[in-house]
Design a protein around this nucleic acid. Sequence first.
DNA 1: TCATGTATAGAAAGCGCTTGCTGTACCGCT
DNA 2: AGCGGTACAGCAAGCGCTTTCTATACATGA
Lengths: 349, 349
Amino acid sequence: MTVTLADVAARAQVSPATVSRVLNGNYPVAASTRDRVLKAVDELDYVLNGPASALAAATSDLVGILVNDIADPFFGIMASAIQAEIGGPGGRAGGERLAVVCNTGGSPERELTYLTLLQRQRAAAVVLTGGAIEDAAHQAAMDTKVRKLADAGTRVVLCGRPPAPETGAIALTFDNRGGGQKLTEHLIGLGHRRLGYIAGPEERTTTRHRLEGHRAALAAHGIEEDPRWTVHGRYDRRSGYEATLELLRRDPSLTAVVAANDSVALGACAALRDSGLRIPEDVSVAGFDDLPFSIDAVPALTTVRLPLAEAGARAGRIAMGREEAPPGGIASVRGELMVRGSSGVPRVS
Amino acid sequence: MTVTLADVAARAQVSPATVSRVLNGNYPVAASTRDRVLKAVDELDYVLNGPASALAAATSDLVGILVNDIADPFFGIMASAIQAEIGGPGGRAGGERLAVVCNTGGSPERELTYLTLLQRQRAAAVVLTGGAIEDAAHQAAMDTKVRKLADAGTRVVLCGRPPAPETGAIALTFDNRGGGQKLTEHLIGLGHRRLGYIAGPEERTTTRHRLEGHRAALAAHGIEEDPRWTVHGRYDRRSGYEATLELLRRDPSLTAVVAANDSVALGACAALRDSGLRIPEDVSVAGFDDLPFSIDAVPALTTVRLPLAEAGARAGRIAMGREEAPPGGIASVRGELMVRGSSGVPRVS
DNA sequence: TCATGTATAGAAAGCGCTTGCTGTACCGCT
DNA sequence: AGCGGTACAGCAAGCGCTTTCTATACATGA
């Protein structure tokens, strides 16, 4: 048998109520009694029964963090920052919380199911990271679920995700559109006129916004876009490699390749090199996110830095009620253009 | 008020017991009754109360995954693989489980506290990943805790971590020593005799084992090691950069740098390049782990591939009782030497 | 001295679910 | 017809904790 509150109470010669109060520290208990109780807890090696406690108190110390792909540093960095603020053990005050990272793998069903599971656990808060899936039915289902969670007292924060109005969720959105635009404008400024674009998976807000920014920049400079210049893929290196070969096949005269993110850009670099093209002399490459490894690419990657850790930390604090929500419940977080070696003046054609 | 089992029961005109049985599907219920119950569940939008359920059933559907640094793909990849097997939502049979990833940040206290938290939640299983901390007191504390968890029925699996005998935990250990040895032997085979080594943080089993392998290779070939050739650092790029500069300062005649892992190796490459040295013509570089980005380094990194995803998947299956534990509860997983462009024949001195 | 606080401890009623045991039909068999 | 079986469904006793309300013991001020 495991040790229960009652056992501790018996040993300390007090009532279970007193033990509970000592453990929760939310009610005056005489110092001498407290010591006796703590001693008993220690001697019996007592561990609180989480479910029982959650049931009785109607609250839990679980905080959920939903990510699309935990193996991707983009999410890893955010999750890490969020978790650090949630406290987990080692967190500052306020009782220990269990921050749980849930990997949706980008699947709508899993996203929803995880939300239900967290709702079931009566999670104290939930942070949803990464772009949303653009499917009307799924969006609606998510919104309903989020609203339900919020109504049940769970604080919901969207980090790097578009706002979900009317759901009671707080949103910290990345300005993907603006970032994409700045990036492409930088390339145009260098003289590029024929730019390939490797977009992420369709039906994702992140994909769409970055692409929109890119197109806005082109439009602003009177560059007419050739439909052959855009290829969709996944957010990984492999995809970038293949998409680049495809782009090259469609139009070998491209002087720049803009990728949906840094991993894709790395794949693009590899494909270009394997095709005998130099970066940036023959083709410039640009990424997005500025993940740690981007600076190690050769040449170092020109990209848009997203303050992942900062945004995550803020989301975590908001989730814990330790920081005020932004006005209107929505804040936009901008990216910073990082110009590095992978972008340069195009060769004269 | 939230909807309870009783509400559903009332609506379906059955007893709460029946509703519970329908939901758990572990007891015969007439098809017509089941349908009525499910309909009521649906109409009322009922969500099971996790804590209450866990309390009554004395089991929970939580599975904990402890990682040192979730922002590091090394752990991200393992966690992802483990979680995929745990099932989480979308997992195959056996009721949905909530796989929770806990970030210890390499801190002994947090490691312990997370274990307590999971114990508190009566987790169904716990997977501990990554090297252990080599501190007698902490080791003992961990072992006791693990034993307690195991005794309480929580399945504990160590993935990429040294075995903890007598604790009831199952271990899938990486053969870091063997990998380190193979790697250094490869360099020696190329003709290197003056090899710098950038080790990880001290007091970590992973660090020690890899270093031991390296030294074993040196010893096997009669190479006497110069104490100046080893520098300790952290497992990140930055650390690799700095350590390399230090190594170069101590002995500019080194012809190879072996790093504790790939991130460190990348930092080393950057430092070498910044010092005007070519890779591998002037100095060869080798990493460890073979993370996805390693192949994108220029030149691609020679390293030891650890089957992170495979090991994680296996650990996950074992944790779920879906795969038999290895004989003796211990299995060693070997790494594979990946020879790539970053290592070559040393320049003639 | 007696009413009135003030501080601390206990009794007990749940929290919402699971499950062992106890019915109650209805079946087929002798 | 009478009996053992089988298939469902319900009763009710908890699971281990929190928390409201009540009780006790002093200390206090009038």
